[in-house]
Design a protein around this nucleic acid. Structure first.
Length: 439
DNA sequence: TCATATT
């Protein structure tokens, strides 16, 4: 459908959206904010952030099942300038009451790439120079940055990243060159696509490693060294001279990644299967904006002018009124005083000096066992054993918080060096991350 | 040997 449009621009599809709104989309910047105390609401956060910067929207990230805060949120600012103000003012600058370390404020995944109008260029000749690439691409706009990937010698890996000043420039280069322009000394046309986000390339690297370990593709790497480093999964479809853009194959392979990830995940943590049955949904999207599957042939959809990506940021401030709590779902929200097990799982900080770091916790200990081992010295506010995200295995360290420094001190006296399981516990005061006083 | 989280 997209290809069939030929020279026609897509602006006709926009009718529902005014130009101003589209401009706003373009300029606005989404920030990810971490270390948000779970009790804070969206309006708490809004009032905090708008002291410093203009904020269009705050949306808490909530647990899908319990609807409770996951301790982080997104903040949308109308411009990069405002977003940078917020980062400058808050990132690592203060610890909110109830958080364990300073507020984290950074660009959300993929924002930077989106803002930088960054293109990936493949199928460059091995011996290409910056000047040669520059000459071809400066035809379409101002090149802010050009980076040719090079191997151990100085020979190029056959690909590069280019940043343009504006999205329009990048797009026109993409459309004019991808699959159409052949560099001197090369037998195939360039591949030009939007650069992957950091996340995507990580996922890709992981998948590629996994794929190469299980399947065997003899000599694959040596036959196509130029693109095997950067295209997904170490597999290259038969090349037909049209580039990968809009051709389907490349898009399809991207599309498969999340499903394979799910499979992999269920292999390593079979525990999850009993409780959560997750259908492989048809709308898995390679980027964070959801679009019908048919729309992302190739990988350039989020930035095509005239194609409006959904503005539906799910949980915005005004949503609160729309989601009345049914009596049943509130039951889970009991306050900490009533929790029976003595603070296991909750990550509540005590006053300064009342928080302990514990190392050499027996492998089989969970939060509850840790809380139990430390409950003789005072009221345990929280006890947390850290686990490896991928394997669920204990990392053998954790934190215990008491109400008073005295309780913590007697726990150190009694427990430090004490043999538990196979090893001797190390019990000491937790490092203090607090950097400034709270509101 | 001192921390997670990306609708």
């Amino acid at each position: 459908m997209e290809e069939a449009e030929g020279g026609g621009r897509k602006e006709t599809e926009v009718e529902a959206v005014g130009e101003e709104e589209e401009e706003e989309e373009e300029e606005s910047v989404k920030l990810f904010v971490g270390q948000v105390p779970k009790h804070m609401t969206e309006s708490d956060l809004l009032s905090l952030f708008k002291e410093i910067a203009i904020v269009d929207e705050v949306s808490l990230i909530k647990d899908k099942a319990t609807r409770s805060s996951r301790g982080c949120c997104f903040v949308v600012c109308p411009s990069r300038k405002e977003a940078d103000k917020a980062i400058e003012a808050f990132h690592n600058k203060q610890t909110l009451p109830g958080a364990s370390s300073p507020l984290q404020v950074k660009y959300a995944d993929g924002e930077l790439e989106r803002l930088e109008h960054k293109l990936f260029v493949g199928m460059l000749p091995k011996n290409v120079t910056e000047d040669e690439v520059s000459e071809v691409f400066s035809e379409y706009g101002n090149i802010k940055d050009l980076h040719i990937l090079r191997g151990s010698q100085k020979t190029s890996k056959g690909c590069a990243f280019i940043k343009y000043e504006t999205k329009e420039q990048a797009l026109s280069a993409l459309e004019a060159l991808n699959g159409k322009h052949r560099m001197e000394g090369s037998s195939v046309p360039l591949v030009v696509k939007w650069a992957d986000t950091e996340k995507e390339s990580q996922t890709r690297r992981a998948q590629k490693a996994h794929f190469q370990n299980s399947a065997n593709i003899p000599n694959a790497e040596s036959r196509h060294p130029s693109i095997f480093g950067t295209l997904p999964m170490g597999y290259i479809p038969p090349y037909d001279g049209y580039g990968y853009q809009g051709h389907g194959t490349y898009g399809l392979m991207q599309y498969r990644l999340p499903a394979m990830q799910n499979q992999y995940h269920s292999l390593i943590s079979p525990v999850n299967q009993g409780t959560t049955v997750r259908a492989i949904s048809p709308d898995i999207s390679p980027r964070s904006y959801s679009m019908p599957a048919a729309s992302y042939v190739g990988s350039h959809y989020p930035r095509v002018p005239g194609v409006q990506y959904p503005v539906a940021y799910p949980a915005v401030i005004c949503n609160r009124a729309l989601s009345p709590r049914s009596g049943a779902s509130a039951a889970h929200d009991g306050n900490s005083a009533s929790s029976s097990g003595g603070g296991a799982g909750r990550q509540i900080e005590g006053p300064p000096g009342a928080n302990l770091f514990i190392y050499h916790i027996p492998q089989e200990f969970g939060d509850l066992e840790l809380a139990n081992a430390f409950k003789g010295f005072g009221r345990v506010l929280s006890a947390k054993v850290y686990v490896d995200k991928a394997t669920d295995a204990s990392k053998c360290f954790g934190f215990v918080s008491y109400e008073t420094p005295e309780a913590a001190q007697s726990a150190i006296n009694a427990m430090n060096g004490r043999q538990l399981g196979g090893k001797k516990l190390k019990v000491q005061h937790k490092r203090d991350n607090r950097q400034s006083k709270t509101y």
